[in-house]
Simulated scan of single mutants.
Amino acid sequence: MPRYEWRERFIDDRVCAVVAESYEEAEVKREAGFWASERTVDFHSTGETSEMFRIDETGED
Rank of each mutant, 00 (worst) to 15 (best):
M1I: 11
G47H: 00
D61K: 14
I55N: 06
V15S: 07
R54T: 04
E48Y: 04
R9W: 03
R14S: 05
S45P: 01
P2K: 13
T40P: 01
D56T: 10
A26N: 01
R30Y: 04
A17K: 09
G59V: 11
R30M: 08
A26C: 06
Y4T: 14
E21G: 07
R7K: 11
E60I: 11
A17G: 03
S37R: 15
R9I: 11
T46M: 09
D42K: 12
R30Q: 05
R9S: 06
E38P: 01
I55L: 14
E60T: 12
F34E: 13
D13F: 13
F53S: 08
R9K: 13
M1D: 03
F34L: 15
E48N: 04
K29Q: 07
S50W: 04
R39V: 12
A32K: 12
F43W: 11
T58G: 04
F10T: 05
A32S: 07
S50F: 03
E21M: 08
G59P: 02
R30G: 03
S45M: 05
Y23E: 14
S37M: 15
E48I: 06
G33H: 02
D12G: 10
S45D: 00
V18M: 04
V19N: 07
V19C: 10
V41P: 02
E31M: 13
E31H: 07
H44G: 03
T49F: 01
E31F: 06
S45T: 11
R7L: 13
R9Y: 01
Y4N: 07
E51W: 05
M1P: 04
A26D: 00
S22K: 12
E8C: 03
S22H: 06
M52F: 03
V28D: 02
F53I: 14
